[in-house]
Every structure is written in C-alpha cells, then in structure tokens.
C-alpha cells in the first residue's frame, strides 16, 4: 500500500492505495469518477485520457505510485454549475457523439489542446487527437466540433 496526495478536479485527495493500481483505477474505483473509460489498457485507444499537470495522459498506463502531488482533471470537471462548456455544446451540435464511450477522452484531448492553443490548425487538432480512437463517428463530426470551437 502507498499513500498518495493529489489534486483531482481541484479537490485535494489523500489516499492509501495498492501499488499495482493505475491512475484509472484510482479515479474509477476510489474516487467514483467513472466518466473516464478503459478501452484497451495499453495506451492505444485514448478512452482513458485525462489531463495530468496540464498534459493529456492515458490514465491506464500511469501507476498510482507516480501520482504524488499530481494535478488531475477529468471529464467530470468540464461541466460547471449544470452548464455545458462550449466544446461540449459543439460536440452535441455537430453529432460528435454516438455510443459515447470515446467521448470523455476525446473531450479531454480537445480541451488540453484548446487550453494551450485556442486557435489550432486542422493539423494540430489531428495531432492532439491522434491517440483517441473512435469506432462510430469516422472522426469527421468530432473534427468539425473542435474546429468550430476555435472559430472566433
């Protein structure tokens, strides 16, 4: 067992967890944040993407023992006071969601990009989302939603 201190969605957490746990297990099982999804367990599909210290990571390949003092943001933190963010609204409007399983990861990758670069090129958007697989939408509505989010 290890003790970890971390910040999740702006809240400080102190946890005693098994060394074998991964960040995704800490979120889903210890903190009840089930919005983050596991699709492959090997960092290939991006369904488990969260923002860690300002950068996207696959939470399935980060061990709990590496979380000391980390700042984590998950899908649960995007909607504020029952109001969707513009990016979420645009996902709805553009039909960027079908089964929805990849959606939390997609949104976190898109948010991390836009937080740093509010006006990315199409190439930069694709770069940011290359590690997020979607099997339903053919990516086109997702790309359109993010493009619209950066239109001034």
């Amino acid at each position: 067992m290890i003790k970890i201190n971390l910040k999740v969605n702006n809240k400080d957490c102190q946890l005693d967890v098994d060394d074998s746990l991964r960040l995704i297990d800490v979120l889903r099982e210890h903190l009840g944040l089930t919005g983050t999804k596991e699709g492959c367990g090997v960092g290939e599909c991006g369904a488990c993407t969260v923002i860690m210290n300002g950068e996207t990571v696959c939470s399935c390949i980060v061990l709990a023992g590496q979380l000391q003092n980390a700042n984590i943001e998950t899908i649960e933190n995007i909607e504020k006071n029952y109001t969707l963010s513009r990016l979420q609204e645009l996902f709805l409007k553009n039909g960027a969601i079908q089964c929805g399983f990849c959606t939390p990861g997609m949104l976190m990758s898109a948010k991390a990009l836009l937080d740093k670069n509010p006006n990315p090129t199409e190439e930069e958007i694709k770069e940011a989302l290359e590690g997020n697989l979607c099997r339903c939408t053919g990516y086109i509505p997702i790309l359109n939603a993010i493009k619209e989010a950066c239109d001034k």
Binding site: G35, T36, I75
Partner: peptide, 14 residues
C-alpha cells in the same frame, strides 16, 4: 441533437 447526448458528454452515462 441526440436525446442521450448530455449524459454522454459529461461522463454521467452509466
């Protein structure tokens, strides 16, 4: 817009 989009875009869908 999908009637089940809200829960999917917020991570609330079970």
């Amino acid at each position: 817009t999908r009637v089940d989009a809200y829960e999917k875009v917020t991570g609330k869908a079970i």
